[in-house]
Every structure is written in structure tokens, then in C-alpha cells.
């Protein structure tokens, strides 16, 4: 493994430690701290609370408490949900795949459309198409995702009646087609912003490549314009996109969470909101940490993929 990846791995580990410190700070910001769950019980006296605090080790110095908490995170003990007592990781695991399904389908859709718009915008620079795409992307980035979801529900569910207004499947009907039917609207809504982002990235990545010498060489060799574009330009323009996909991950994840809340999609965003409503702090904390870890791992993965695909990095 090249030194580059080792140093990236080391950086990610450092990041994880800092992320956990921020998470621990937030945990202690909670009114009543980790004791909040007991403070809600009217039968609790101050002596009871003090005793529980001692039993939970909350009277120890903060650094000791942090190490204890972080150690438990490492061993997979993320606490239990206040709501049903289930382990936090298990609760998150139940909602994980719904979010991944939404993110995955929307990312595939938006990469396909965004890449096309971006390449076309770059090859037809300053054309009507390019200008419309540029302005359109800026407007798309300005539309609140949750509101766009409401508009989508109004048009396609309430007025036209084509698509369901929420949930992941009709109760009693678990067929793949039914899931797909429910997936269309949230997936398209989430894609709006992502298409805008991808097309802008792809446009500038293509522009970076399109005037380089090897492209001119390819043309000079007499290759067709189409072959030059597909093989020489797009291939190289897509490389930085992998890194950008990693960097864009918090945004895509955040967008998915917003979309879920509007469409009552049973993913992590919905879980987060429900947990906020119940003051289910272990789950809130768990999701906060989990999403940050996911983002760090995503970035790491993107770098590894780039290193595997790009021979320049392997040599260097």
C-alpha cells in the first residue's frame, strides 16, 4: 500500500477521534447531561440522581468519562434507546438500508443526468444550453428540498394521483414494484439538488481536460470527435468526480434526511426526527456519530478508489 493511502488512513483515524470529542461535548450539552432520562421521572429525588450519577461514573473527571465513553463506542456499545430499550446500533441498522436505497437511487439518477448536462455544457460552452443549465442549476440549488417535496406531493399525489405521497410501501403489499412506485417521488426530489451539483462539477472538470495536449493529440490522430470525448475527455474528467463525490457526501446524506422527513420515508432522517420528538438522546447521539463516521469512511473510500483507478497516484 502506498504511503499516500497510509497517511490518509492515519488522517481518518485522527478525524474520528476529534469527531468523537465533538460528539461527547454535545452529549454533555444536553440539559442534565446523560442523566436526562432519569431526571424526567417525577419520582426521582436529588439523592437518587446523585446516586445514579455515581453509579454511572458521572462524578469522575471529564477526560476519564470521555475515554470510557469512546471505549464503549469502539466495542459497539452505543447505549440503548429510551423508547424501546433496543441497542442504538441495532435501531440505526433497522433504518440504514432505507436511507441507502434513497441515496443510492438518487445518486445514480443524478450522476447520469448531471454528467450528461455537464459534458454538454462544457462542449457547447456559452451556448443557450450551457447558459440555461448554469442558471437552472443555481435556481435548483436555491429551492428548499423539503418544499420541493411538498410541491411534488401536491402535483403528483394530490392533483394527478400518480404517485404515493409518502411511506416506503403499501401495507400488505411488499412487492418490488410497490417499493419502486414509492421510491420515484422522493428519489426525484432529492435528485434536483444533486443534479445541479454534479452538472456544475462535471462541466468544470470537463473544461479542465478538454484543452489539454493529449486531447489535441487524440484529435490529431484522426479519432472521431465522439471517441475523443468518450474515451479521452470523459474518462479523465470523471476522476476528480470520485473525490468530489466523497466530499459531497455530507450534503447528499443531509439532503436524504430532509427528503425522508417530508415523505415519511423510514430511514435515518425520519428516525432522527422521531428521536428528537421523544428526546431519545442515545439514538440522537448515535445518529450524529454514525453519520460523521459514515462521511469519514466515504471520503477514505473515495480516495482509495481514485488511487486504484489513477495510475499517477500509484506511481507517485
Amino acid at each position: 500500500m502506498p504511503a499516500f493511502l497510509l497517511s490518509r488512513l492515519w488522517q481518518s483515524l485522527v478525524l474520528l477521534v476529534i469527531v468523537s470529542i465533538i460528539g461527547f461535548t454535545v452529549l454533555n450539552l444536553i440539559p442534565g447531561g446523560p442523566l436526562a432520562q432519569f431526571a424526567l421521572d417525577p419520582g426521582m429525588t436529588q439523592e437518587d440522581l446523585d446516586r445514579i450519577a455515581r453509579q454511572m461514573g458521572l462524578d469522575r473527571p471529564l477526560p476519564v468519562q470521555y475515554l470510557d465513553w469512546a471505549g464503549k463506542l469502539l466495542t459497539g456499545d452505543w447505549g440503548n434507546s429510551f423508547r424501546d430499550g433496543a441497542p442504538v446500533l441495532q435501531v440505526i441498522g433497522r433504518h440504514l438500508w432505507a436511507t441507502f436505497l434513497l441515496m443510492g437511487s438518487s445518486t445514480a439518477l443524478s450522476i447520469a443526468i448531471g454528467t450528461w448536462i455537464g459534458i454538454r455544457g462544457a462542449t457547447h460552452r456559452y451556448s443557450v444550453f450551457d447558459y440555461t443549465a448554469t442558471v437552472g442549476a443555481m435556481i435548483a440549488l436555491s429551492i428548499p428540498t423539503f418544499w420541493f417535496g411538498l410541491v411534488g406531493i401536491y402535483i403528483f399525489s394530490l392533483e394527478l394521483g400518480w404517485l404515493p405521497a409518502g411511506n416506503m410501501y403499501t401495507i400488505g403489499d411488499g412487492s418490488a414494484l410497490n417499493y419502486l412506485h414509492h421510491l420515484i417521488l422522493p428519489s426525484v426530489v432529492l435528485s434536483l439538488v444533486n443534479v445541479a451539483i454534479w452538472s456544475r462539477y462535471m462541466r468544470s472538470a470537463t473544461l479542465d481536460v478538454i484543452n489539454q495536449d493529449f486531447v489535441k493529440t487524440a484529435r490529431a490522430k484522426g479519432l472521431t470527435e465522439r471517441r475523443v470525448l468518450m474515451k479521452h475527455v470523459v474518462g479523465n474528467a470523471l476522476l476528480p468526480m470520485i473525490t468530489l463525490a466523497g466530499m459531497q457526501l455530507p450534503g447528499i446524506l443531509g439532503g436524504a434526511l430532509v427528503t425522508e422527513t417530508v415523505f415519511t420515508w423510514p430511514g435515518m432522517g425520519r428516525l432522527f426526527l422521531d428521536s428528537l420528538g421523544y428526546s431519545d438522546y442515545p439514538v440522537i447521539m448515535g445518529l450524529l456519530m454514525f453519520s460523521a463516521i459514515l462521511v469519514i469512511l466515504g471520503n477514505l473510500l473515495a480516495d482509495i478508489v481514485v488511487a486504484l483507478v489513477d495510475p499517477r497516484i500509484r506511481l507517485g
Binding site: 440539559p31 440522537i284 460523521a292
Partner: peptide
């Protein structure tokens, strides 16, 4: 700067919602 990177790893919506609900 690592601290800055760590903040960037949290989806800002989660962080804002959690803090807004707590404070």
C-alpha cells in the same frame, strides 16, 4: 484544521437540529 475537518464530517442538518432541540 483537523478540528475544522471534523466539523465538516457532520451533516450540518443533523448538528443544527440536535443543537436546536437541546438549546
Amino acid at each position: 484544521m483537523r478540528f475544522t475537518d471534523a466539523f465538516l464530517a457532520f451533516p450540518s442538518i443533523f448538528l443544527v437540529l440536535a443543537l436546536a432541540a437541546l438549546l
